[in-house]
Each structure stands twice: as structure tokens, then as C-alpha cells.
Amino acid sequence: MADSQEQEQQWELSEEGCHVSLTHDNLNVNTIMDRVRSPSAGAIVLFAGTTRDNFAGKPVHSLTYTSYHPLALRTLLSIATSIKATHGLTGIAITHRLGPVPIGEESILIAVSSPHRQAAWRAGEQALEECKDRVEIWKREEFTGEEGVWRANRDGKMGVKVTE
């Protein structure tokens, strides 16, 4: 799925203060903050999810994300618009990285801006939880000396082993 042409691509959707995107590139904290920056906002809350080097203590040597791009974007935008309305945000931006992501790098960034900080804190947390619940993106963890595993967020347990 991740052919060489795709490496250069970015997929995005925008709507009134909401911006969501998927990319194979490194994620950039400044870019996403600038998406939500506004003179009417008094706070920007930024969440950066980074790739961990272990699952329940087992060493993970690499991770790869795949996605159903058009549906994942649609779901991301629906999360963004609903959270923006619920918390009265000025802006919200969510971006997720796809393809291989080296350990310790950002796999997801969420930035929200609002007139006051309380709403931004709450909205940021809720946005992440809804993404992990619903967005059509899948993570595969490769372990040293073992088969890879497709993770499932919903059970927080070890996913199903993959034999290839």
C-alpha cells in the first residue's frame, strides 16, 4: 500500500476551524500549532503521541501504521467538528503519521485553541480518546525475534499474532 509515490503524499480535509490530515512525512509541531493559532484564542493545547519501544515490557523494534485513507479522514473531521462545537474551540487540528514510524517519534499530533485554557485541556484529551476509539488507522508492532502484531486499542491487550 505504501508505494514510493505515496511517500510524498499528504491527505487532508478542512472545514471552518477544523483541519485533519494523514501523511507519511515527519510530523511538525509548529505547523499544526499555526493551524489553530488565533488572536481570539488565549490557549493552545498540543498533544504529541510518540511511538514506544516496548509493549508491556516486550521490546518493539519498529512500528508501521496503515489506514483506510478517505474514511479515516472523514472520521477525523467528524471528531474535530463535534469537539470544536462541544467545547467552543477557536480551532482544532489533528494529524496522524502513516507508514513506518521510528521509535520515539511522533505518530499523532492534536492541537486545539480556545479563548480559555480549561476548554482546550478538556477538548484535547477528548479528541485523542475519540481518535483512538474510532479512526480507521491500524498499528503493527514488530518485536525482536518474534512475529509482528496488529494492535487493537479497544482491549488494551496484546493483539493477534500475524503469520506471514
Binding site: 503521541g49 501504521y65 489506514s67 483506510y68 474514511l71 479515516a72 496522524h96 505518530s107 499523532i108 485523542l128 481518535c131 483512538k132 476509539d133 474510532r134 479512526v135 480507521e136 488507522i137 491500524w138 498499528k139 496488529w150 494492535r151 487493537a152 486499542n153 479497544r154 482491549d155 493483539g159
Partner: peptide, 10 residues
Amino acid sequence: VAIIPPVSSG
């Protein structure tokens, strides 16, 4: 048509 296994973004 798509088969959507349990998701794992983040």
C-alpha cells in the same frame, strides 16, 4: 466494501 478490524491509531 471494507473489512474494518479493531482500530489502533495514536
